[in-house]
Amino acid sequence: MKVANVQAGHDLADPRAATWTSIAHESVSLAPVPLRNQPNEYIRTKWADRPYGETPSASVAAASDGERIYLLLEWEDDPRPNGEFQDGAAVLFSSGNSDGLATLGTPTSPMTLWYWEDRRPAPLVLQSSGPGVFRKQGNGNLAAQAGLRDGRWSVVLSGPAAIPPDAKVGVAVWNGTNEERAGLAAVSREWLPLELS
């Protein structure tokens, strides 16, 4: 996926910015994190007969002004009202080792997540060693703006542009209406290489 080069003074932090329409969007197919990989018996038992991670796809677009990288994630919202849990999404960064995308990382190949959740005051950097096996790493100078319009979430996650040249990203989405959280996510089936200008 090409990371568009933009000049300072842009408005790409806003998912509604018109500038995004001129930046290439990639469609990413999602699949549920496998039940057998969920980290404990309680979760595997509770969700044994309950579907999750059924958000079918998300679209991703990326831009950078040299200091920060902006990633726009969009996906169809579940139209049913949320209860105790809110919708969430994350950009996944591989640690170099491509293993573990389907399980949000492994103990030997953890990945970094830029994590956004509706109604959390700020996005989080998470280190993920498996489905829901998260460690908060603070805010990491991330910012997020989100909007829900016509049944579609648009979220811009932005952070420091210190991305390695061979970086690959993935996407994860949590449907809060379905009480999805931790490892109960829809995650991209393949890594998306970032082509930095």
Binding site: N40, Y42, K46, E84, F134, K136, R181, A182
Partner: peptide
């Protein structure tokens, strides 16, 4: 500092 508010414990 670790709790993510997943609330499986509450269930």
């Amino acid at each position: 500092e670790i709790c993510m508010g997943d609330r499986f414990c509450m269930e």
